[in-house]
Nucleic acid binder design. Structure first.
Lengths: 230, 230
DNA sequence: AGGCGCTTGTGAAGACGTGCACAAATCGCG
DNA sequence: CGCGATTTGTGCACGTCTTCACAAGCGCCT
């Protein structure tokens, strides 16, 4: 599931603070989910918990890392070293969690040759040559939307089957290629929606008839992380 | 729903290319979703389509922007101008889609005073004063994980009720505060999982008995955007 | 005016995820 | 060795989301 990485992060935290075992309740709190859900998720991996005790932290980390395919350090190619690409190239969270940025590309000759945190930016047309040397598993697109589809095609052409897309557009890829999209503006717009909803609710606390407030009420329950705590 | 912003983006694209109306089929393709799903989503807003013709692009844009609360340009406070924060501060996708970065903060005195794309970085302790001047609607946390919870508390204290968290940790906030989390490393790990799955499937195409491959098969269907096209 | 093609809006069925509640299992202690 | 405390693993029910399929409605052409 998509929650496994979150569990893994929480487990690493626990391991660093010296915990040998965790109960599902404890891990669920650390990961921000329901304990029953967590148990169900972990039971899918094969049971690695001991009743009455909990889960062995180290063993569980190994298991999840194996399932996620993190036993091998995958090489990532990053295309587009603009504002965002720059930040991604320097983001140490990638290296510390099982990935290695293997190459940087851009279409702008101005940027080719620039060195960013130890890597030299190459022209995107050199992608086939570099891919032949290194086995690129994942491509990251941090270009403007207009260039994203072309870059995706180029990545697919050199054998990349997983793409992380930061450009605000939908990509068309052949079957068997996985695309995940991260759109920063969309995240803000979703928050804006909730703001708008909250403002409407406080403004008209009693009236609940309009389509808008009905919609808002229905959507409130789909919120991911809200009001955990105190 | 969380899909509305995606529809909005697609609609803006269509408007720029001169389209006056769209069919649900056309818009669904542009947004990468099923057409029935799109119709159901839009019907929740109140019916703004004409049978036999389609949806009026301009009208639909206005409607969605209203529902998302984008009629007012919301002020965003960004805390943490490290690698990622720097990029976010300069990201023009925010400004072009209804948001205004109102202030930049950091806890590091080294960074305070630095100017990034027209804004001066202030110390995070000045947050209350700035919040009193400008009505901050949304806070963005781009700090290391260790500092995130403290920053979240500070944001909540000055009245922020929506937070976008880029730090790899779960935040505890009071009821009524919405938190959305974006973790770049997790996105890569999910892709890695799919890579691992694909590799396992090609390696052992016939054997389907292990818990691992069973898990993988079940997860394949939960993929968001896969194999649109050709 | 009438019919035809196209598109929306929606009812119903199915798949899916979620959470409760409890049985099974393990450890520690007397 | 037995008992109680604790925790996992899971059957079951519920609500939600998704998808198909089709009736209702609209415009255009004759």
């Amino acid at each position: 599931m998509a929650r496994l990485p979150e569990y893994l992060r929480a487990l690493h935290n626990l391991a660093e603070t010296g915990h040998e075992t965790v109960s599902s309740e404890g891990l669920a709190n650390a990961a921000g989910v329901n304990s029953a859900k967590l148990r169900k998720d972990l039971s899918q991996l094969g049971s690695y918990g001991t009743r009455g005790v909990g889960y062995d932290v180290g063993l569980l980390i190994d298991q999840i890392e194996y399932v996620l395919g993190l036993t091998q350090r995958r090489a990532v190619a990053l295309v587009g070293v603009g504002n965002l690409g720059h930040a991604l190239a320097g983001y140490d969270g990638f290296a510390s969690r099982g990935f290695r940025i293997a190459a940087l590309f851009d279409a702008d000759q101005e940027r080719v040759g620039e060195e960013i945190s130890g890597l030299v930016v190459r022209h995107v047309d050199e992608l086939p040559r570099v891919a032949a040397e290194e086995s690129i598993a994942i491509g990251v697109i941090a270009t403007p939307a207009a260039a994203a589809q072309r870059v995706a095609d180029q990545l697919v052409a050199v054998g990349v089957t997983s793409i992380l897309n930061f450009a605000p557009c939908v990509l068309t890829v052949p079957e068997g290629v996985d695309v995940r999209k991260v759109d920063l503006a969309i995240e803000l717009q979703i928050l804006s929606f909730h703001e708008h909803r909250k403002a409407s609710l406080t403004a008209l606390p009693a009236t609940g008839g309009s389509a808008l407030t009905a919609l808002s009420g229905g959507l409130a329950v789909s919120e991911g992380q809200e009001a955990i705590g105190t």
